[in-house]
Amino acid sequence: MSNSSNGQDHNGGKLSPQEIAHFEHRVSELNKKLGKVRAGKIAKAESQGGSAVGGRGMSYGFKIGSEFVGAILVGAAIGYGLDYLLGTKPWLALAFFLLGFAAGVLNVMRGYQQLQGDIERQTGANIGKDLPDDDD
């Protein structure tokens, strides 16, 4: 490296202007190629992440919807059963139907909080955090 290479860089270790131009040309060419590969990779990762979130979104939709309906059904069933046992038809069925509706709304709210947390953890995206309430 020491003596044999001295023959090549005869300018005392400095490159000639042509050599510098050639080198810079190669670097810029490589940069272009690298940029293309990187852009392709990023686009691919984004599309994959997007489809994963989309699939999850569908499953979250089913989850939240069925939890809402499920709570109403369970509430109505409890009310109907209590009516049957206590002979208070139809009042408890009505009351528990409404309680079931409230439980359904609670399920939806919890499901949405869960969804927010999951998406934030996976993608770092904020899909709508709670704003401070006027009453708070």
């Binding site: 709570a71 059904l73 369970v74 509430g75 309680l99 079931g100 409230a102 439980a103 609670l106 399920n107």
Partner: peptide, 8 residues
């Protein structure tokens, strides 16, 4: 409500 939610 919580119990109904749990049972659902």
């Amino acid at each position: 409500i919580e119990i109904i939610s749990f049972l659902s």
